[in-house]
């Protein structure tokens, strides 16, 4: 992009600062709650005695499996993201390359949209019975498979827009140079749609990381993911805001790290592919 200068730059920085304040303000406020005792949260106090008790409680108390939940979430979100990127970009490329402007392509892309519109509570019942009958209830595999499926529509649509942007000449040139279909896809096309893979990867990861309804239905204590664990702090007659804030803060950190490194991993994987 074109760097801004002079007055425009000041306006730009002003807008960015405001946006960041709007986004960060509430997040910082949640962080403050994580180091308060519940009574300080209740009274909305700005002067309070900071404490790490909430973090200690959610990490180490007997009742807590948060570390284990984090591991489950890490496995599910990680695996399902990698898989949905592979499955989704292959599918979108197929639609783009071989089924373009055909009825089938339209039907498929329409179907995934309709599927995406279905309220999740009507899905979880059938899915629970399906995985139970396969003996996959209470396994991370069931969760990985369902998360791939729910993230497929978004991934395919995002990737399709990126594939459509790739100039046709590039592909034709590769074919003339003797590259086969797969080699062209892997060595020429994919490196060009890297930003698309990164953004759909980040979004799939985040959706899987925070997905609650399916995880609740398909898991039990050993396989519960972070959102299910955090929802336990919203009890019938009492919300434990302090613990909820602390565990939410803890859950953000690995997600952020994974996204930063995962992004590099994707970009590097693509560029080494292109160089070879």
């Amino acid at each position: 992009m074109i760097p801004l200068h002079g007055r425009a730059a000041w306006i730009g920085y002003g807008v960015v600062a405001l946006a960041i304040l709007f986004i960060v303000g509430p997040t910082a406020w949640i962080f403050l709650n994580s180091i308060k005792y519940q009574i300080a949260i209740y009274s909305g106090a700005w002067v309070f005695e900071p404490t790490l008790d909430n973090y200690i409680d959610v990490l180490f108390s007997r009742r807590s499996d948060l570390v284990h939940n984090l591991w489950n979430s890490f496995v599910v979100a990680g695996l399902s993201t990698v898989a949905v990127l592979v499955v989704g970009s292959l599918g979108a490329y197929g639609v783009h390359r071989w089924f373009r402007s055909r009825l089938f392509a339209k039907l498929l892309m329409g179907w995934v949209l309709i599927f995406h519109m279905i309220p999740v509570i009507t899905l979880v019942g059938p899915w629970y019975l399906f995985f139970q009958s396969l003996g996959l209830y209470n396994t991370l595999l069931a969760l990985v498979l369902t998360h791939i499926t729910i993230n497929l529509p978004m991934t395919m649509w995002i990737m399709l827009t990126y594939f459509n942007e790739v100039p046709t000449e590039l592909r034709e040139a590769a074919t003339i140079d003797g590259c086969g279909d797969f080699t062209t896809f892997r060595r020429i096309i994919l490196p060009l749609v890297g930003p698309g893979l990164v953004s759909s990867g980040i979004l799939s990861f985040v959706f899987s990381w925070n997905e609650f309804a399916i995880a609740l239905n398909l898991t039990a204590r050993d396989t519960a993911t972070v959102p299910v664990a955090i929802a336990r702090f919203a009890q019938q007659f009492e919300i434990q805001h302090a613990q909820m804030a602390a565990s939410s803060m803890i859950a953000i950190v690995p997600a952020l790290l994974l996204m930063v490194f995962g992004q590099r991993f994707i970009v590097r994987g693509l560029t080494t592919g292109a160089v070879k």
């Binding site: 009742r63 979880v124 019942g125 629970y128 019975l129 139970q132 009958s133 209830y137 609740l216 239905n217 039990a220 204590r221 299910v228 929802a231 336990r232 919203a234 009890q235 019938q236």
Partner: peptide, 21 residues
């Protein structure tokens, strides 16, 4: 074994349990 579940998920999990084989 105690499966501690969020209040909001209790009815769903109980229904699932009795509707399965």
């Amino acid at each position: 074994k105690l499966d501690v579940t969020p209040y909001g998920g209790m009815l769903e999990k109980a229904r699932n349990a009795v509707r399965a084989a």
